[in-house]
C-alpha cells in the first residue's frame, strides 16, 4: 500500500517535472537518487546508522548533561550563553515542543514538560542537503548528514530549511568561547554552519558516538546506536517492536533519530 502510493507519487512528480522543465526534474531526480541509494544500501548490506532515544530513561536523570558535555567537548563546540548566537549540536527541549503533534492539552504535565534530547535527525530525505547551493552539506553513504565547513559560504539556507532547528551558524569567532580546544577535532571559523555529524570521525575508528558512550558510562542507557539496515541489530529490533516516534513525520524527511516515550 505504502509503496504503491509512493510509486504513484513518483510518477505524478515525474509528469509534473516534465511540465516544469529541467529545474523541477532535478529536484525529483535528487529525491529518486537518494531513494535508490538507500535501497542499494539496504540490499547490498550497506549501513544506515541511526539513534534511538528512550526519553523516559533519559528524563529519570534530572539535569544530566553527560551526553551534551561529551559531545561539545569532543567537537570543540563553543559555549555561548547568549540565546541568539548560541551553538549547539545536541541539547534538551520540552516534549511539548519536540512532539508538537503528539502531545496535547490532556497529556500529563510530566509528559509535556519532559526534557527530550534533540539533535540533527540525519534524515534520509534531508531538506538541508536539498537546499544547500554548494553541497557543503551532504548525505554520506552510511547515513549521517555531513557538513563540509571548508565549502560552506554561510548563506544559512540550510538553517532556514531544517525543520528541527538542528543547525547553528557561527555569528562570531567561536574560539574565545571554547574553554579547552582539543586539537584532534578542528573547531570552526566564524561565518559557517555546523551541527551534529553523528560522530562520523569516531565511527571511522570503530567507536560509538560520544553522546552514546557518555550515556552508557553514566549508566543511564537511554541512547542506543546502531545500523537500521541490519535486521538483527538491537536498534532495529527495538524500533520494530515498540511504538517509536520520529519528529515531524508528516514532512517526509524520514529522520533517523527514533524516540520512545
Amino acid at each position: 500500500m505504502e509503496s504503491g502510493r509512493r510509486e504513484f507519487l513518483k510518477t505524478a512528480a515525474g509528469a509534473a517535472a516534465l511540465g516544469l522543465g529541467a529545474g523541477a526534474a532535478s529536484f525529483v531526480g535528487a529525491e529518486a537518487l537518494a531513494r535508490s541509494r538507500a535501497g542499494q544500501a539496504a540490499a547490498g548490506g550497506g549501513k544506515r546508522y541511526a539513534l534511538a532515544v528512550d526519553t523516559k530513561k533519559c528524563a529519570e536523570r534530572e539535569g544530566c548533561r553527560a551526553c551534551i558535555d561529551a559531545c561539545h567537548v569532543t567537537h570543540n563546540v563553543p559555549r555561548i550563553e547568549n540565546r541568539e548566537e548560541e551553538i549547539k549540536w545536541v541539547w534538551k527541549e520540552e516534549a511539548e515542543w519536540v512532539f508538537q503533534d503528539r502531545v496535547h492539552e490532556y497529556s500529563g504535565a510530566e509528559l509535556r514538560r519532559r526534557p527530550v534530547l534533540v539533535l540533527c535527525n540525519h534524515c534520509d530525505n534531508p531538506p538541508c542537503v536539498r537546499v544547500c547551493p554548494t553541497q557543503a552539506t551532504f548525505k554520506s553513504a552510511d547515513g549521517p548528514v555531513m557538513m563540509d565547513p571548508h565549502r560552506c559560504i554561510g548563506c544559512r539556507y540550510c538553517v532556514v530549511g531544517c525543520p528541527y532547528g538542528a543547525r547553528s551558524f557561527n555569528w562570531k569567532d567561536p574560539r574565545p568561547y571554547i574553554e579547552h580546544v582539543d586539537p584532534a577535532y578542528p573547531p570552526r571559523a566564524r561565518g559557517v554552519v555546523e551541527k551534529c555529524t553523528m560522530c562520523s570521525e569516531r565511527l571511522a575508528h570503530g567507536l560509538l558516538p560520544a553522546c552514546v558512550e557518555a550515556c552508557a558510562r553514566e549508566g543511564a542507557g537511554a541512547l542506543l546506536f546502531g545500523d537500521m539496515n541490519d535486521p538483527e541489530s538491537e536498534i532495529r529490533k527495538r524500533v520494530e517492536s515498540s511504538l517509536s516516534l520520529r519528529r515531524k513525520e508528516h514532512l517526509g524527511t524520514r529522520p533517523q533519530v527514533y524516540y520512545t516515550l
Partner: peptide, 10 residues
C-alpha cells in the same frame, strides 16, 4: 589554521 589547531591545547 583558522580552525586546524597547531598544537595540543593551542
Amino acid at each position: 589554521f583558522d580552525c586546524h589547531v597547531e598544537t595540543a591545547g593551542g
